[in-house]
Design a binder for these strands. Structure first.
Length: 273
DNA sequence: ATTGTGGCCTGCCCGC
DNA sequence: TGCGGGCAGGCCACAA
């Protein structure tokens, strides 16, 4: 599914369109536009504008034009199509078929088309999206920012990582991957992490995102192929556990991701310095 | 204010 | 072979 990693790929793929003029915006399915009924306003605001830049905050892609901004969210099955070419070969939970009827929005520019194909319409297009409610982007978050996002909360750690208002960009697969790498139980109260654990989480968040970007998708994690009945921990072979955490299907290793810190080894390191 | 839950949306897969 | 139920989860509205 599109998480930060996929949306960053989308952004890079669309970069050749910077400088192009928007000739037409075609809303193929009104349900894709938010707020409801905003299609006409969206078309008017964007038509004739020039694409000045492409930004990404978390899972939100922002097409900045000379007149307004177009915010694109991809939900779970949304794919960005640039000049008729998919910017990703496949999504984990998305259909492999490419039905033209699933194209919900087409932005026709002087340099080619930008389109969104989204079978389930869980994504959306929004004019001048409000970004003030998004937390720091997970790719550039500092350890201090991460600590602030977690502190003082008894909410399960994973739920906090998925909260886009606290930290933007982490979705279900990345959350499981990072927590597995950091040897942290997804149900640990977010505020219960020691400073050393927060630093460990921060380090693994960064390296996991780097790895996933290099590997080509949020589904390329080491734990991802084991997120299934019968799956085992790639590190120690322990059968993975499954539960719903933060409303999402969650898999973790009960041997090295424990609820009580420090009792099961993990990769806890000697305190540096 | 924070936190949890249900619904949206549809393709796919399994069992009957 | 067709069919129905369950499942996938990002986001938002809503409730407590």
């Amino acid at each position: 599914m599109p998480e930060l990693v996929e949306v960053e790929y989308y952004r890079r793929a669309a970069l050749p369109l910077v400088g192009a003029t928007i000739e037409r915006v075609t809303v193929r399915d009104e349900r894709f536009v938010r707020p409801a009924g905003g299609a006409a306003r969206l078309r008017r605001a964007l038509r004739g504008g020039r694409i000045d830049g492409l930004e990404r905050i978390g899972k939100l892609l922002i097409v900045r034009t000379s007149g307004a901004s177009l915010g694109l969210r991809f939900g779970m099955t949304g794919v960005l199509v640039v000049e008729g070419t998919d910017t990703l070969d496949e999504l984990v939970y998305g259909p492999t078929r490419r039905d033209p009827a699933w194209v919900r929005l087409v932005v026709t520019t002087s340099a080619g088309d930008l389109a969104v194909r989204d079978p389930r319409i869980l994504g959306s297009a929004e004019l001048d999206p409000d970004t003030s409610r998004l937390g720091p982007d997970a790719l550039g978050v500092t350890a201090g920012q991460l600590a602030a996002a977690l502190s003082g909360s008894s909410v399960p750690l994973k739920a906090r990582l998925l909260d886009q208002q606290r930290l933007a960009g982490v979705g279900n697969l990345i959350a499981d991957e990072v927590l597995w790498r950091a040897s942290l139980h997804p149900q640990r109260p977010a505020g219960s992490l020691t400073p050393a654990e927060v630093r460990r989480l921060h380090r693994h968040l960064r390296t996991a995102l780097d790895d996933l970007l290099a590997a080509g998708g949020s589904h390329q994690g080491r734990i991802t192929p084991e997120r299934r009945p019968g799956g085992r921990c790639p590190r120690d072979g322990t059968p993975l556990r499954r539960a719903t955490v933060g409303g999402r299907t969650t898999w973790w290793c009960p041997a090295h991701q424990t609820l009580t810190p420090g009792t099961a080894g993990g990769d806890t390191r000697r305190a540096g310095r």
